[in-house]
Design a protein around this nucleic acid. Structure first.
Lengths: 232, 232
DNA sequence: CGACAGGTTGAGTGAGCTCAAGTCGGGTGG
DNA sequence: CCACCCGACTTGAGCTCACTCAACCTGTCG
């Protein structure tokens, strides 16, 4: 969510770093492996997955260009996998010491970044309905990578579902419903445009709980009106 | 979950610290306040709450004697409240600098502790059913404070519910059901004994999903048998 | 062209929510 | 000492939203 320390920071650059490439779907490290390295994304998208004993998984985060992941104490609590083809910079922790003992100058920044990611994940999972979770996820993702209203979701529906604690069916249905109400646009499964950010924000914040679709759409239209009038 | 750095460590002891008392229910700091201090629990229990725009809350953690909380970057992302009467040690961050710039030696340890708490929270919310969440919560709490099989839950059902993303009704029903099956014992709402930790672990790990109660109870009985035979 | 992965959509079910009533224990005031 | 209240908890009944099961569509790759 939060960039590490501004646009230009490259914390990985200061250490013995190795550039690596992974193909789509490849595993970068596995849950339980000794946490010897941390990584920074150069290009592409990475997901971290926590696997439960019964086989189902909880995606704890998506990492885009500039993001840092793999900041764990002893062993990795989540595995990391390439969502798309990725290039990474790998940084060995062992050259200084464990990251927990702060012999690495940016240790605090890296941990802070990891903590922010975890809190964002909690913020999504704490929401109550599928609408709220999907809406909040779209806004968070748009804010992180899109910048503008059009965004390309690199991950599959299954990834989104396992991130939000839903099924792919519910995610798909919810997105279709949002598109039907013209809150978002769907140009193919991966390409999404946010048409009504204001209304999406209301949905994410739970304003649609005991309110009918017609009511919330009216509220959204009212909220949009000044912005639209101002914008053109 | 994880103690900061062993039983005897008192990271708060090394700084300008102030001892504070709060009564049950009192607010220690509010969400959005500038994060100027962090705290260590001397006695009692503290909860941290993330409030959503619609008024519902997500408890992001419970903190017991020895635990540290309030490790945020700029402003507190959650409020902190006294679950019981508590005594705390408050430590000012401003004496060095912001915690993110690692001028405070234990900054990394504190952040690591906060990260562990966040990951435990995700691990609970990532579970699928009420049974799994409640079982996992009981085990985590017992491991943290109980030590033995008997534990005193300092928080209310509402606190548990808002921590697990359930309602108080579902929490209450689930606990009653666990008691009815003699997996736990209930001596009053706050006092719980774990009678069958093995079976509780199976439930927490989702082994009861597509299995009937009778089947899982039988599995649990089998799993218990050797341990019982060995133990006495 | 077939195989397959990813995605969408429908129908029916069920776990957990909502609404509602009732219990229990502790505190307070008459 | 008892009546009363209040907050916390429990439990029942019904409903709803998300899951399950299933079918089908689409694009891609060999």
């Amino acid at each position: 969510m939060l960039r590490l320390s501004g646009q230009t920071a490259h914390p990985a650059a200061r250490y013995s770093h190795t550039s690596l490439k992974f193909r789509k779907g490849e595993i970068i490290y596995a849950q339980g492996d000794p946490a010897t390295d941390w990584y920074q994304v150069e290009s592409g998208t990475v997901r971290t997955c926590f696997l439960y004993r019964d086989g189902h998984r909880q995606l704890t985060g998506f990492y885009y260009s500039g993001d840092v992941f793999g900041i764990d104490a002893e062993t990795y609590r989540s595995s990391a996998e390439a969502v798309t083809a990725v290039t990474l910079t790998r940084c060995s922790k062992s050259m200084g010491s464990a990251i927990a003992s702060n012999q690495i100058p940016e240790a605090s920044s890296l941990l802070q970044s990891a903590l922010n990611h975890a809190q964002s994940c909690i913020s999504l999972l704490g929401r109550r309905t599928a609408n709220e979770r999907v809406a909040a996820f779209l806004l968070a993702t748009a804010w992180r990578i899109g910048g503008s209203d059009s965004l390309n979701l690199p991950m599959t529906r299954a990834d989104i579902a396992d991130h939000l604690g839903l099924t792919i069916h519910t995610v798909s249905r919810t997105l279709s419903e949002l598109a039907r109400r013209e809150i978002i646009g769907l140009n193919g499964p991966q390409s999404i445009t946010i048409r009504n950010p204001h209304l999406l924000r209301l949905l994410a914040d739970g304003e649609g709980r005991d309110t009918s679709y017609e009511q919330i759409d009216r509220i959204g239209a009212l909220a949009m009106a000044p912005a639209t009038a101002l914008g053109r």
